[in-house]
Design a protein around this nucleic acid. Structure first.
Lengths: 137, 137
DNA sequence: TTATCCCCTGCAACCTGGTTGCAAAGTCAG
DNA sequence: CTGACTTTGCAACCAGGTTGCAGGGGATAA
């Protein structure tokens, strides 16, 4: 456990401090997206700024990616093909309006768009909202 | 001018006050999305809360719809098929990273998704980011 | 016309999420 | 052990969004 998280940090060039290990392990365990606010609540002993900077460091080094869902940014673990050079796992995300979890949908393909005129698309942001499998009635 | 905006308000059951006419005309003229902040800057004599409530009223009555693009909500005029009963013009939006305008793309079809398990999709949020036709090099 | 009521507006305050400066504490190499 | 660099915690700040409250203005009933 500890080891794998630590290795993960080192592999991405992030100095493995106690704080960072805790946050990374939380993300690994939870397997769902976490917002700054969630981390604040989870690690109420530590400071918002530290958590914020931890997330920013992780994002910059390619461990996690942020998704803006309805005003707040949630962070999810990246798959293997991401690094400090860039995030390459572009895929839709699903936000459950019941349990408020955000889930990656890497299996769902991003749609291709041909816009009529000379629009230059650099980024696609696709969020599906509804009930997840666990919250469906 | 005045008449059409006024009619538009009345048709949607919104009492046409001076404030509301100004905001609606601004939206009609600009033909691009406006955020609360933009309106605040444009109508610096009036209050944020009033502008906020104006937008909310318009949205509730089906005149405009809000799109969350990277943290802030921008509002765009609805097409004909919206009303207080609901917003039915679901379509992608394009956000230009150069001029920061948000544009409706009603001509682009929303993709259909079949999610593997019993996910219940209620809403699709699709935002394309890049350079618009006017800002392309 | 006057009194009444309701809706609209402006002011102020507040909350949340995000962000930065600064100084203390910790880490590590020489 | 010392000095340099990194990480952390505290505080403060900012923007966007939101609400309560009181005053004003217009429509309506008496």
């Amino acid at each position: 456990m500890k080891h794998s998280a630590e290795q993960h940090l080192i592999r991405h060039g992030v100095h493995p401090t106690a704080m960072r290990l805790l946050v990374l392990e939380y993300l690994l365990d939870n397997r769902t997206a976490a917002s700054l606010g969630q981390l604040e609540r989870e690690f109420y002993r530590s400071d918002k700024a530290t958590l914020y900077r931890t997330l920013k460091t992780f994002e910059k080094k390619g461990l996690i990616h942020g998704v803006n869902v309805g005003g707040t940014t949630v962070y999810l673990l990246c798959r293997e093909n991401c690094s400090a050079e860039g995030h390459f796992d572009v895929h839709p995300h699903f936000f459950c309006t019941v349990c408020a979890r955000t889930i990656c949908l890497p299996q769902a393909k991003m749609p291709l768009f041909e816009l009529p005129e000379d629009f230059d698309i650099q980024e696609i942001n696709l969020i599906l909202k509804g009930r997840c499998d666990e919250c469906a009635d």
